[in-house]
Simulated scan of single mutants.
Amino acid sequence: MSTLPTERAVRTTPEGLLWEPSARWVRGRKGEVTVVDSRHPVLVWEPGIPVPTYAFPRQEVREDLLRPAKNPPTGTHTGSRIFYDLDVDGHLVANAAWTFPAADLADHIAFEWFRRIGRGLDHWYEEEEEIFIHPRDPHKRVDAIPSSRHVVVEIDGTVVADTHRPVLLFETGLPTRYYIPREDVRLDLLEPTDHHTGCPYKGTARYRSSRTQANIVWSYPDPLPAVGAVKDLLAFYNEEVDITVDGERQERPVTPFTRTVPSPK
């Protein structure tokens, strides 16, 4: 007996929100205090924002730690009705939580993520795995696949990488990233920096700069298991360098990362 794939259970609201239930056990902490402990979270996509956030039934939130916001923002989170300040052991976090105006989500509360915008809850967990920046989108794939393609990377006309053993990383909504072994990269032309970023799909990235562009290349010293094949390999911003694959020069894509790479000071 065959079965059909389950259809995507996304709902829409008149306000333009998309949301769907999640089966994951989600917890959020501020310091050592658990503020959210939910087995019935929902994922919410706001208009114009490509990544989701979680919202939680009120009964799975420590509402005793929430206070009506003293200075609620306007024009954020799709016209949210109510904002809350979070009070944990006398430490007040302004506008840390909110409710959406949609009737479907009236009994749910959403929270900011500290590592995404600089305020909100410090640590988030799906089951027993800590996640960073924002929830992972269940409709997004990230695949790291070893390849034998010939990849050449140039910066300002100088070849800085040349390999026949890249790992290609395919991530929904982004251009293919070419991760290159260190032995095939001109590390003498790249200077390590203190910059780092977090990704809920890949882990924490460290960066290097060229002589003309800051933080143009990154690597994952300790990637998440799903993309373990990119460990310690180096990837360049396709948006800002010239990449040739199997003799074919690739067009520089336009993405949210375009023109965000500054020149070194």
Rank of each mutant, 00 (worst) to 15 (best):
P5F: 14
E32P: 03
F111H: 01
G247F: 07
R11L: 14
A55M: 06
E46C: 02
F236Q: 14
G173A: 13
E191A: 15
V159Y: 05
P166M: 08
F83K: 02
V159T: 14
F132S: 00
V142S: 13
G16F: 11
V35Q: 05
T258N: 12
L43K: 05
V241G: 05
L168Q: 10
Y237F: 15
T197K: 03
V254K: 10
G198R: 10
M1L: 13
H196D: 10
Y179N: 00
A226C: 06
F132L: 02
H108Y: 14
R8T: 13
E32K: 11
R11P: 08
N238R: 07
E63N: 03
L224D: 05
A94E: 14
V36Q: 02
R211C: 12
L86D: 10
K265P: 15
H91A: 14
Q250F: 10
A229H: 04
P181K: 11
A103K: 15
I49C: 00
I133E: 02
D246Q: 12
Y178D: 05
G118S: 11
G28N: 02
H139R: 13
E20A: 15
V160M: 06
L43Q: 06
L168F: 08
P52S: 09
H196I: 06
Y84G: 03
A9F: 13
R136N: 06
L18D: 08
T172N: 06
V44Y: 00
I180Q: 02
G75Y: 10
T197F: 04
E191T: 14
A229L: 04
L234K: 07
A106E: 13
T99M: 07
L43P: 02
Y178T: 02
G173M: 13
S219H: 14
H139Q: 12
F236D: 08
Y125P: 00
D37G: 06
V230W: 00
L169N: 01
E127W: 06
R39F: 13
P14A: 13
A55H: 08
P57S: 13
L187G: 11
T258K: 10
L121M: 05
V227C: 00
G198L: 13
P101D: 05
T74A: 15
T78Q: 09
P221C: 01
S38G: 08
N95M: 07
A110M: 09
V33E: 12
P57T: 07
P72L: 09
W45H: 01
P47T: 09
G157N: 09
L169S: 02
E183P: 03
R182D: 05
A102H: 04
R24S: 12
Y207P: 03
E128D: 15
S2Y: 15
D122L: 03
P5S: 09
H150L: 07
P135E: 00
E129C: 14
T76R: 15
V42F: 02
P223E: 00
G48R: 05
V26K: 00
V61M: 08
V51D: 04
P166H: 09
W113Q: 04
L17H: 10
P138W: 04
K231I: 01
R11F: 15
S209E: 06
A96Y: 01
D232L: 12
P41A: 03
W98I: 03
P253F: 08
V51E: 11
S2G: 11
G203P: 05
W19V: 08
F132E: 00
V42L: 09
V61N: 04
T76C: 10
C199S: 11
G203D: 07
H164A: 11
R177I: 05
T12Q: 15
V44M: 01
Y179E: 00
